[in-house]
């Protein structure tokens, strides 16, 4: 198995405070990995780092065979202006950006793909609706449709199933599994351990540092979870400069 991402002594953070501290490890191509941990554990920060939105303040991320812009990234609360007058179809079609660029035409083939993606997330019939009229669940379905079109080898999902009903969640999990079947690497930040145990073979338990990483059942043990909570709660405002050797 070849890896697609490698963290080398990675430290990510804001204003010198590390949110992810000295993380090392590899993610295999085609992995279906859940990232779990208490609030403030650095899960979202790690995804931002992988997506290239946030620069490491120490160490580095090696991306094998993919550039940051080939990585599809769905942020936790996407900064989308829902009052913008645009239809669901046009919004999903933006997923073609990488192959279409500034001037490329949409064309018949790409149009069909947009309809397919909209159908795959169960939004057929909503193509002409403006995005402001969608419910939270429909919005998330639409964003998944856009991810489908991005056709990315690595897909990052930050709490993709929060505030979403069971039916929508089941549909979206099916899409995640479809990606997994296509040998894409999917990394998702999740809080629902039941769902992680059921659908995600591997888990990284994070508490600024790596607490455990590997098979989901072993990683999400009661002991590990307790340890993760203790580490995060020990955040020190007066923290000294980190002197740990690289």
């Amino acid at each position: 198995m070849s890896s697609v991402l490698r963290f080398r002594d990675l430290t990510l953070g804001y204003d010198r405070h590390p949110a992810v501290h000295h993380l090392a490890g590899e993610i295999e191509r085609g992995a279906l990995l859940a990232v779990c941990g208490p609030n403030g554990a650095g899960k979202s920060t790690l995804l931002k780092g992988i997506a290239g939105v946030l620069r490491p303040i120490g160490g580095r991320i090696e991306r094998m065979g993919c550039e940051p812009r080939q990585i599809a990234y769905l942020p936790q609360a996407a900064d989308i202006d829902r009052s913008f007058p645009i239809s669901v179809f046009d919004m999903v079609a933006m997923g073609h950006w990488r192959s279409m660029g500034l001037f490329g035409g949409l064309g018949q083939a790409r149009k069909l793909k947009v309809f397919d993606a909209i159908a795959a997330v169960g939004l057929t019939g909503f193509e002409d609706r403006s995005i402001g009229t969608l419910s939270g669940g429909q919005m998330q379905r639409m964003l998944f449709a856009r991810l489908l079109l991005q056709d990315a080898p690595v897909i990052l999902l930050d709490e993709p199933f929060t505030a979403i009903d069971a039916r929508t969640m089941a549909d979206l999990v099916d899409i995640v599994k479809r990606w997994h079947g296509e040998n894409r690497t999917v990394i998702a930040v999740l809080h629902d351990f039941e769902m992680v145990r059921e659908h995600f073979p591997q888990t990284l338990l994070l508490a600024r540092e790596k607490v455990a990483w590997g098979d989901t059942r072993e990683t999400l043990s009661a002991e590990n979870l307790l340890r993760a909570r203790r580490i995060v709660e020990a955040f020190d405002r007066e923290a000294l400069e980190c002197t740990r050797a690289a």
Binding site: V53, R69, I71, P75, D81, F84, M94, L102, Q150
Partner: peptide, 20 residues
């Protein structure tokens, strides 16, 4: 020339940053 990125920059700047 600017139309497409400008729409996206207004609508969903995070996405534009992630693809371009």
């Amino acid at each position: 020339a600017l139309y497409r990125p400008l729409v996206l920059e207004t609508l969903d700047p995070g996405y534009l940053a992630s693809v371009s």
